[in-house]
Design a binder for these strands. Sequence first.
DNA 1: CTAAAAAATTTTCGCGCGTAAAAATATTGA
DNA 2: TCAATATTTTTACGCGCGAAAATTTTTTAG
Lengths: 340, 340
Amino acid sequence: MEEQKIRNMEEFSAVSGISRPTISKYFNDPSSVRRSTRERIEEAIARYGYRPNLFAINQNRKFTKNIGIIVPHIVDPFYAEIVRQIETRCVEAGYWAIVLGSHGDAERELSAIEMLYSLRIAGAIIAPLGDTSVSDRIRQLAADIPAVIFDNHMNGDEIFVGTDNFQSVGLMVDYLCRSGEPPCFLDMPAVNTNARERREAYVRAMEEQGFEPHVIPAESAGWDFEELGYNAGLRLLPTHQLPTNTVLCANDRMAIGLIAAAFEKGLRVGRGAATALRVAGHDDHPMARFTAPALTTVAQDYVSIAENSVSTLFGMIEDGVRPSSPLRRLEGRLILRASA
Amino acid sequence: MEEQKIRNMEEFSAVSGISRPTISKYFNDPSSVRRSTRERIEEAIARYGYRPNLFAINQNRKFTKNIGIIVPHIVDPFYAEIVRQIETRCVEAGYWAIVLGSHGDAERELSAIEMLYSLRIAGAIIAPLGDTSVSDRIRQLAADIPAVIFDNHMNGDEIFVGTDNFQSVGLMVDYLCRSGEPPCFLDMPAVNTNARERREAYVRAMEEQGFEPHVIPAESAGWDFEELGYNAGLRLLPTHQLPTNTVLCANDRMAIGLIAAAFEKGLRVGRGAATALRVAGHDDHPMARFTAPALTTVAQDYVSIAENSVSTLFGMIEDGVRPSSPLRRLEGRLILRASA
DNA sequence: CTAAAAAATTTTCGCGCGTAAAAATATTGA
DNA sequence: TCAATATTTTTACGCGCGAAAATTTTTTAG
């Protein structure tokens, strides 16, 4: 890289000997200029290290190349992993992914949405919190801008990609009933639609199998699922309040907490003969392989969720086509490990 | 909110009856306008829902209100948590935090740095990967723009906030030696300075205690620490290759993997009488409370790291003062749980 | 009540780039 | 070779706001 600092496209145009509009065209779409020109520009970029100012680029463009992403919790590896997948795909397609977290707080989710507006995004991919008042705002956004909702359905006509809880939970209930005592269900706080759907799916699946469902309600609100599962374990396990020796948890993070509590109380978890408790989860959380024992769960297809969200969104942005079926429910995959 | 859509500050000025420059001043610093004016503006904001265009704001500002943040892995809850802390503090101070992940890849880290340049950030907070070639670029950035490095020291004169590995590891070694067999050390891949420092700290601490150090080298590279710890466990535990019954892991994520392997191999982990193995970690990873048994570790002070990084950076940005001592080494805190 | 100080307004300019239209040049095919 | 086409250059404007200077209005102090 030469020592000369290029301050703007004008100067870059001067040193590279190519007119500014052509350079502008190149940065918008390298394939839109002749090959020989492209090579000259790229050579100059390598020499002078110029990159256009992002703010100026988006200032005057009719449609920006920004994709807004909102998730409830970036700290949750489940969302972190999906965001990573989405991000990579956006960058590959020449877009810039702007990730905003609502941190479990409806107000911050609202302000994240306002932020997306002022960023003039081309499209949005959102995993909503459960708050109904914000849902209206998200629906408004989806009416104004191409938007895909994932993970948590808002029960409207939004374009949605997520796991089919009835299929995935059904699969697990079926397996657990066939391989041992029918499970009870450790519910998660009603933070979103998934919570309700999974509970309903559990009840329905149990009834279909001819067993009576037992739902253990969540004792407190919030997103600290490991903590909740752990506390539930400390509360229920010593006093043998569980209706069966098999617990299906509403998600893996609760299962992780429950397993920790069981260990602490000296109860062996697993599907062997000498075990006191079987525990199953849902999601195939990145940590599920490393619990003791490793967690039997239903895998949400991270890659497909990301892929579907992104490709659907790009279809809407670039070709203006709404997907024929707005609802895309992906199948969960049973992951058998040692815990159940 | 009224139905009328405000398209820019000019229109907002018209409907609110306040001149555009005053409104501009307000958005830059609400306290810079008279109280009565402020109230009128805020009333109008509530009525019309106007927010200035972010790209236009930053387009022409001498110093933007953007803070760039780069971390090796957003998926790692350790970084995720620190980022969340930093983010919150930036927003509170009226800045916008732009988080970029290098995903363990030096090239992506480089392009993240280029991105920060084109975002015209006011300052940067960076947890570098270990790659030396990129370090030069980061040093260049730090010369151009106020920047704070955290977590992983680059061995230059950069402004740094991080845990004092010699203190924290020393603390743990001391505890382990006093409470049972002296530990061996399960090393992590040499992805950064922390890896080297912690190993050296272990060796030094053992020698000071008069014991012979035993370092188990990392068998492969990469950031999949749980996997590495797990594989090391599967390899070493059944054949009793460990020099002692106590393992100090270079970080919690490796310890989590090791504990999972021990469980799978039927070895009881813990500090009780009937246990075969003691395992300790480093970092107090969010998941460390929920391993089975819960993990004894040294807590890195997430809050202080975030706080120190942010306040140091703001000092440099707003008052132009370099901190008197560029190196800030925070103390680790011993967290005794059941695993050792 | 008046002068001084503080705050708000008016005016004007420019940031770095996208974009459109017209003119000039280069490439392609027959 | 020349016309037809593709590409680049020239020229010109505007996006939405920050910022500075000069002016007017409001507030505060004496």
